[in-house]
Design a protein around this nucleic acid. Sequence first.
DNA 1: GCGATCAGCGGCACG
DNA 2: CGTGCCGTTGATCGC
Lengths: 251, 251
Amino acid sequence: MAFHLSDAQEKIKTGIDSGKMLIVIGECFVQYQGRAGSKLPKGKRMLLVKGDKSFAIHQNTKLRPINYMMNAQASVVLDSEKNALVISASKRKPKEKIDIYFYSIDFAESFDVEGEKELRLFGSERELSDLLMQDLSVLEKGLIPLNKEQMLRKGTIDIMAEDKDKNLVVIEVKRRRADLNSVRQLHSYMHQVESIKGRKTRGILCAPSIGKPTSELLEKYGLEYCKLDYEISNPHAEIKGLEKKQKTLFG
Amino acid sequence: MAFHLSDAQEKIKTGIDSGKMLIVIGECFVQYQGRAGSKLPKGKRMLLVKGDKSFAIHQNTKLRPINYMMNAQASVVLDSEKNALVISASKRKPKEKIDIYFYSIDFAESFDVEGEKELRLFGSERELSDLLMQDLSVLEKGLIPLNKEQMLRKGTIDIMAEDKDKNLVVIEVKRRRADLNSVRQLHSYMHQVESIKGRKTRGILCAPSIGKPTSELLEKYGLEYCKLDYEISNPHAEIKGLEKKQKTLFG
DNA sequence: GCGATCAGCGGCACG
DNA sequence: CGTGCCGTTGATCGC
């Protein structure tokens, strides 16, 4: 045992209050009650407490913590009966609580670590959507944009457009392979637009690829698919091509 | 600088190969290219490498890592021109690569940490669904279960049942507040069942709560809502009550 | 605050 | 392997 629990207590308390990144490693049992409930059997793990008061218990596999709580209030108490150092973190809205019982502590240290420095990401759906919006004619001749991110009462349409025959066109953009959910979204939006505007409306799903069942559901709903080829170059993504793959009665 | 980069190199290499949990803290720049692309400006951060070869770069906020890669192959190289220790992790399927440039290292250590010990969780949707399945009559008199987790060609139905009038009933269970997606799922499933079986089908959404827009869409589709009260007690969840809140032509 | 959607979603279970 | 969907989803943005 590298630490006496009482020594660790002070170190952990100070660490949490300091707003630094705190790392604690030791044998622990974890209990959670809130949106769900869980118990994690005794074992050696890492507790990671960040400056924003997020608590994460990590095992030696998986990307995500096995137990966690974010934006919590914490207490560090020595339970002399159980001979354990108990770190409790709780939250309201939703009401939840996590209790971490440390029976031994191998390591406890705080580190000065960057807080909010922002990641510059490219190739997001938003970026692709913006690019498409700039020139919808690559998708189909005569297609002109009407609106972006239009809020319906029940959902948000990626791109709203009008084709050369003055039909309304709802476009749903996906950065990765389209799935059933994508189709359900598009179908729902198209239905609402038809119902509101009272005129026939087309729906186009733009994605780099699409699976068989998804494609079948798309067809069943009378929607269209357009293959979206894009490349993520250095500072920005770039659309390489669009290819209409499926037509409906409107084609 | 607590470590010479060349000393750290050996420690990190050994740490990754050992399968232990490796923690590295230092000033770094991170670059990612794969499903998307990103650059993370130079700053002090923590790198967490787990036994399953998952790599995670953590800043001092948020639960999730700012950059990551799972199940990767790694190399640790000293770049004497840039005076940096470069940790690269790459993967195929999908092809992606992350490069971490450490310019200084404050801390590098490996720890023996529990790997796969399993969390016992209660209150999952699966558990609620199982409980409901045991006695559908609490939902509606005369309702009998036909099938659970029935795979359609385009989706999976939580519970399939039959009411006292021999109508088919599709039931979608949600462990938290129902949203538009829940309704879209249910609608899609009901539509498919009707189309396959060729007879009128009801759809019931079971969730602890539902919002206004979601409720409106539900009604528009002719679906029903049933409030699901449950409690997560110690080793298991428990259904406290069900209350039919919305009726359709079938009511 | 709720509402809706994206995410380099991750993770799981089933075909 | 892909396909579908849950998640204590988390995180973001708009109302």
